[in-house]
């Protein structure tokens, strides 16, 4: 079976997986209890509960709710937020919060990969050296640090003491921007702090995984072949080492992609970054089921898609992968 057939077949299973996981999400959120009971306080008239229940369609049988859910889903309707009353969930999420989070997590994770993967390869090559021991120790420390504490320290040092970064938000409030360029510059300035927090947060695990597989790969016989053949150290580490050591890291990255849409709850809260993480935090606090359900669906889409991409990349990087 060739790569194309494999890709097509995996696409079909991915779509099935998507339907199954979203269906599971549907039932889990129905098990959480009656949202009307949470919304209706003692101040409301007795008939209010019935009206709200009918409004949400919760008086219909479960199978019908399930059918209606999918029908609405394909019409781009994921329900209305409980907190932002009457606002459709998709409008709560898109475009601002979604974009904010994708920009923050995308840049932070990319920065983390750009630093941790080359360093991991080098540390694996010089296993047991000062460089290896130094960064391995640092990684363990960084992994053990709570994310909110890390974000607070970065905010305190870079923002409060040094004054290099703003103390919060995505742009300076109450300011009119003369051009999209000055808006972008201001946005980027606000991005630095949370981006560094995310990059530091992801550094340790990615470094350690790359280092471990690099140390294994760079001990193999073919590395000795190229050393003996007078091939340069850079080619050995970053061509042969990278290609062979990246596979475990690739699966790990696919899992990490869920953060791309889920955001980082702590980091976003500390930096008042108006993204998905902050939204999830708010939604959990206020039992905003439709918002949580929608975020769950987005995370499912991203995880399934990124695993799909990782599986295809596996085959492209390692020719020994068989598609059957």
């Amino acid at each position: 079976m060739g790569l194309a057939t494999y890709a097509a077949r995996r696409a079909v299973t991915s779509v099935i997986l998507f339907f199954v996981s979203v269906s599971i999400a549907f039932f889990i959120f129905r098990l959480l209890g009656n949202p009307v009971a949470i919304m209706v306080g003692p101040g409301l008239p007795p008939g209010a509960a019935q009206v709200l229940t009918a409004e949400f369609g919760l008086n219909k049988p479960l199978w019908l709710q399930f059918v209606l859910f999918w029908r609405n889903f394909f019409h781009g309707n994921l329900g209305d937020s409980f907190v932002y009353t009457g606002t459709p969930v998709l409008q709560v999420i898109f475009p601002t919060r979604f974009i904010n989070t994708v920009v923050l997590m995308g840049s932070g994770m990319l920065l983390s990969y750009l630093v941790s993967i080359p360093l991991g390869l080098l540390a694996g090559r010089r296993y047991g050296s000062m460089l290896d021991r130094g960064f391995s120790g640092l990684s363990v420390v960084l992994i053990s640090l709570p994310a909110f504490w890390l974000a607070l320290i970065i905010l305190l040092v870079l923002g409060f003491y040094l004054g290099w970064i703003p103390l919060g938000g995505t742009v300076t409030l109450n300011r009119t921007f003369s051009s999209w360029w000055s808006y972008a510059a201001n946005y980027m300035h606000h991005l630095i702090g949370p981006m560094i927090s995310i990059a530091v947060f992801f550094f340790g695990s990615n470094f350690l995984i790359t280092r471990a597989s690099s140390a294994n790969v760079l001990r193999e016989n073919f590395i000795r072949t190229f050393e003996a053949a007078g091939v340069g150290e850079g080619t050995i580490v970053f061509r042969h080492g990278l290609r062979n050591a990246i596979l475990p890291e690739l699966s790990f990255m696919a899992v990490q992609m869920s953060f791309l849409v889920a955001g980082a709850i702590f980091t976003e809260s500390v930096f008042s970054w108006d993204g998905m993480g902050s939204l999830i935090y708010l939604a959990v606090q206020n039992s905003d089921y439709p918002v949580l359900q929608a975020t769950f669906i987005f995370i499912a889409i991203v995880v399934i898609a990124s695993n799909y991409i990782a599986d295809i990349l596996y085959g492209l990087i390692d020719p020994r992968v068989r598609y059957d």
Binding site: N221, F222, T225, A229, H240, R243, N244, P319
Partner: peptide, 28 residues
């Protein structure tokens, strides 16, 4: 130059053999 024991992995498993030999030439 050296010819190694035919262990399974004397060549990089992820690259075409021709390209690996080209790489050695171009290193010199």
């Amino acid at each position: 130059a050296m010819v190694f024991q035919n262990a399974q992995n004397s060549l990089d498993p992820t690259l075409r053999v021709g390209d690996q030999l080209v790489e050695v030439i171009l290193a010199h």
